[in-house]
Design a protein around this nucleic acid. Structure first.
Lengths: 206, 206
DNA sequence: GTTGTTAGGATAGTTCTACTATCTCGTGAT
DNA sequence: ATCACGAGATAGTAGAACTATCCTAACAAC
């Protein structure tokens, strides 16, 4: 496959493909000779991944690069894919893993939910987030937190189910990232709906 | 207060304030004479709102303008503020209110949750979102959906509690928008944590 | 009353992101 | 022989959100 054909196969303009090549998001094709290179199915898959992460989730190229870099050494094993999933999550959620903060609220939550009691980036993120919310004066009573946790548990389970499906690593990432994003958006829509209902309950018709 | 003082009071550069004035995000001060204008506390509040929506939530100026426009005619009454809250929500969640789709799943959900059975933008959004997820091949079984709904209900309740606090309309918007955003981020962080736990449970230490 | 620093208003320039277009050169196919 | 096409490099574009510059008027100090 030459660049023009790759462009047709992926639906991405040749100019953009060149741009991705320059940016290092797409590896160069096998150079047949100085002015000709051959591209394969992995290039098409990579382009679909880039395009999907951009169009469906709105990730920037820097974030996409982070995910691609993490996927570089991963094989099809469950452990590797889960590690990759963690990376995807941290990118989609925008964590940059700065400070680790202890939190009694998080400890309680982990206990109550029966989650594995282990130090992780996610745990630090939750603790940090609660601190930010407290600082911002946003109330989070334990009952609400528990409710969130149950929803989160359900989402996590749904995500892990997807993990078992055997696909190319690119399809795996895309499925996981889009699933994550859609679940998130769904929750937000439900909150809006719940809020509309509560408003009507409280104050009659809007 | 003159422009320079407004800049100092708000911590926003005079050049940016001028930009906001040109953009129509900030109303002009009272013109004392051709080359001098006076600004008041409402200008400071408006700037804080703009800055807060941008810095804390990452909203674009167009979105901020939508919220500000909606707040223009609102008084301090509960009904007005709830309507305003709905606008803030639609902007933060990125709804543009296109097509209304009927959905049996949403009807069931509303029934089960005991939510007010009324047509709303949010209800259409949920239905539409479920359709998108189905189209994308993302699984959403009823149990997961119910779990989300309970979490959403809790969030909605927490948000409404904030509604009762009497503040300036700008502070009200900022509190609501930031609260909304933080609750959302919190859920995402919890999902990450839950997923990490499930991974550990399933595959041992990472 | 003159001079000089500053406010206000308008216009143009900058930075960042993600491309897109152009230009050149070397081939390979006709 | 020629001619279009691929590869590489460089420059241009568009939108968003500022930022800098310029000009004029006027208040403030001397």
């Amino acid at each position: 496959m030459r660049l023009g054909e790759l462009s047709e196969a992926s639906g991405i303009s040749a100019a953009s493909i060149k741009f991705y090549l320059r940016s290092g998001l797409l590896e160069a094709g096998d150079a047949i000779h100085p002015t000709r290179a051959a591209y394969g199915i992995r290039h098409v898959r990579r382009l679909r991944l880039i395009q999907g992460l951009r169009a469906s989730i709105g990730l920037g190229l820097e974030d996409i690069r982070r995910i691609i870099d993490a996927s570089a050494g991963a094989d099809a094993s469950a452990e590797q894919r889960l590690a990759l999933l963690a990376t995807v999550q941290s990118v989609v959620l925008g964590y940059r893993g700065d400070g680790v903060r202890e939190s009694a609220a998080v400890d309680d939550l982990v206990q109550v939910m029966g989650w594995a009691d282990e130090e992780s980036g996610a745990r630090a993120a939750v603790g940090e987030h609660l601190a930010v919310m407290e600082a911002a004066g946003v109330v989070t009573d334990p009952a609400v937190l528990a409710s969130y946790a149950r929803a989160a548990d359900a989402i996590a389970e749904a995500q892990l189910a997807v993990t078992d499906v055997q696909e190319s690593i690119e399809e795996f990432i895309l499925t996981a990232a889009i699933g994550m994003h859609l679940h998130n958006q769904l929750i937000l829509a439900l909150v809006a709906l719940a809020q509309a209902s509560h408003s009507i309950r409280r104050y009659g018709a809007r």
